[in-house]
């Protein structure tokens, strides 16, 4: 094994082309059906709106479909498609940021009201929505997907040190916005 992937890629099978394509599509469809619900939930936590999440997941599966034959290790598929979703979201966010040049620091005015109307959990979610995209991705992957720091680092393509610092900053921001202090945490 020399770690090489040829530029042309793809394996050479003995079955007719149509038969291979049908088997490939069946294989892909089965995977997509099994993975779609949880991927959509993650995408929703990243985007905050259902239409955007569905679009993101559709884009991710389309890119996965294009690369399906090149992926040798099927056990790594979950991580692979998750990486597409997270990174595609970041690039979408970057494009939107370039268009609108908006700041993500502003806390929605409704956040405090939500605390009374829908409880602490709802309020906390609104604060998560205000985090910068990378910090939000780290929070979602850590506290919803239950990934380790190393897995988050691999997903986002950053070092584990950056994962730690991003998580730390995100938690500090959330605590501050939620009016919590470290002292309260220690109690």
């Amino acid at each position: 094994m020399n770690g090489t992937m040829t530029a042309t890629g793809g394996s050479v099978g003995l079955r007719p082309r149509e038969e291979r394509a049908a088997a490939r599509d069946a294989d892909f469809t089965a995977y997509m059906r099994s993975r779609q619900p949880s991927l959509l939930r993650t995408a929703y936590l990243l985007t905050g709106d259902l239409a955007g999440a569905e679009d993101l997941v559709q884009d991710a599966f389309a890119k996965l479909y294009l690369s399906w034959d090149k992926i040798r290790d099927r056990e790594s598929l979950d991580g692979y498609v998750r990486r597409i979703v997270v990174n595609e979201h970041n690039s979408l966010w970057r494009r939107a940021w370039k268009r609108r040049e908006r700041s993500s620091d502003a806390v929605p005015d409704t956040a405090v009201l939500d605390t009374y109307e829908d409880g602490e959990a709802r309020a906390l979610w609104r604060f998560v929505e205000t985090l910068p995209p990378r910090q939000r991705a780290v929070v979602v992957l850590r506290y919803y997907e239950d990934l380790s720091e190393a897995e988050i680092a691999a997903t986002l393509g950053i070092s584990t040190g950056t994962v730690k610092s991003q998580a730390s900053r995100a938690l500090a921001t959330l605590r501050e916005r939620a009016g919590r202090t470290d002292r309260e945490e220690e109690r």
Binding site: R41, Y44, L50, W125, V128, V140, Y143
Partner: peptide, 19 residues
Amino acid sequence: ELRASLSRRVEGGVPPTSL
């Protein structure tokens, strides 16, 4: 709390769809 908040959000906010 953060973990619970995220879970609650997707339980109630993401209907099943099928691509």
